[in-house]
Computed example of a mutant assay.
Amino acid sequence: MLVFLALCGGGLFATGFARSGYLTRQGWPVDQPVPFSHKHHVGDLGLDCRYCHADVERGRYAGLPASHVCMTCHSQLWTGAAILAPVRASFAQDKPLAWTRVSALPGYVYFDHHIHISRGVACVECHGRVDRMPLAWRAKPFQMRFCIGCHRDPAPRLRPPDQVTRMDWSAWDRDPANRGYGRRAMAAFHIQPAKLTDCDTCHR
């Protein structure tokens, strides 16, 4: 009986640990060489995600901001701020900043930003409300069950591809004219959930 209870307890602990924020890092702010605030840049100033993540519409990787992108503004604003010293040094030395990836996936997972963006999966679906994040953190667990859940039922997560960087979709979702958009998008883009859940879609 004790062995049975121990096995059950161990199984419950392992399951809980596997889904815990400690393992997934969900909700944990990530240290960066510069404490970049998405809340300020996206939420307050209204910068579009693509300004810094310039490759998101054309490749697997969204890309991380190059120092010259930061210096577009910061050659004029906060030019002597100590907090921006790493950006100025990176720009002067022509050496990229060593950003820490917040949403890194394991090497055995194939993910292509371009295909998701072009079909209308909004940034907020995976990255959360970055416009409310003073420091970036992982908004979703990025475990297999998260990806499979979307692949099995993509319709509720599809939006107009030309608006994918929008953060607040509440008004859009309430508009009766937009009801059924996801199903229409699936038909237009020939999205077939049965194929999306094939193992080789994400493991190649």
Rank of each mutant, 00 (worst) to 15 (best):
S67D: 15
H68D: 14
H68S: 13
H68E: 10
V69D: 03
V69S: 08
C70E: 10
M71P: 12
M71W: 03
M71R: 13
C73L: 03
H74S: 11
H74T: 04
S75R: 14
Q76A: 12
Q76D: 10
L77I: 12
L77M: 10
T79N: 06
G80F: 10
A81V: 00
A81R: 05
A82P: 10
A82Y: 02
I83S: 10
L84R: 11
A85S: 08
P86R: 04
P86V: 04
P86S: 08
V87S: 06
A89V: 11
S90F: 08
F91R: 07
F91C: 10
F91M: 04
F91A: 13
F91S: 12
A92T: 10
Q93H: 11
D94T: 10
K95V: 11
K95C: 08
K95P: 02
P96Y: 03
L97P: 00
L97M: 12
T100Q: 11
T100L: 06
R101S: 14
R101K: 12
R101D: 13
R101V: 07
S103D: 15
A104H: 11
A104C: 05
L105Y: 09
P106K: 08
Y108S: 13
V109M: 14
Y110Q: 07
Y110I: 13
F111S: 12
H113L: 04
H114I: 04
H114M: 09
I117E: 01
G120M: 11
G120T: 09
A122P: 05
E125I: 15
C126V: 05
H127D: 07
H127E: 05
H127P: 09
G128L: 03
G128Q: 02
G128S: 05
R129M: 04
R129N: 07
V130D: 06
V130R: 11
V130E: 13
R132V: 00
R132F: 02
R132I: 00
R132K: 11
R132W: 13
M133S: 01
P134N: 02
P134R: 01
A136W: 04
A136G: 08
A136H: 05
W137K: 02
R138I: 08
R138D: 05
R138V: 02
F142G: 07
Q143F: 00
M144G: 05
R145H: 13
C147Q: 04
I148N: 00
G149E: 03
C150K: 12
D153N: 15
P154I: 02
A155R: 05
R157G: 10
R157F: 15
R157W: 14
L158I: 09
L158E: 05
L158P: 08
P160H: 00
P160Q: 12
P161R: 05
V164Q: 04
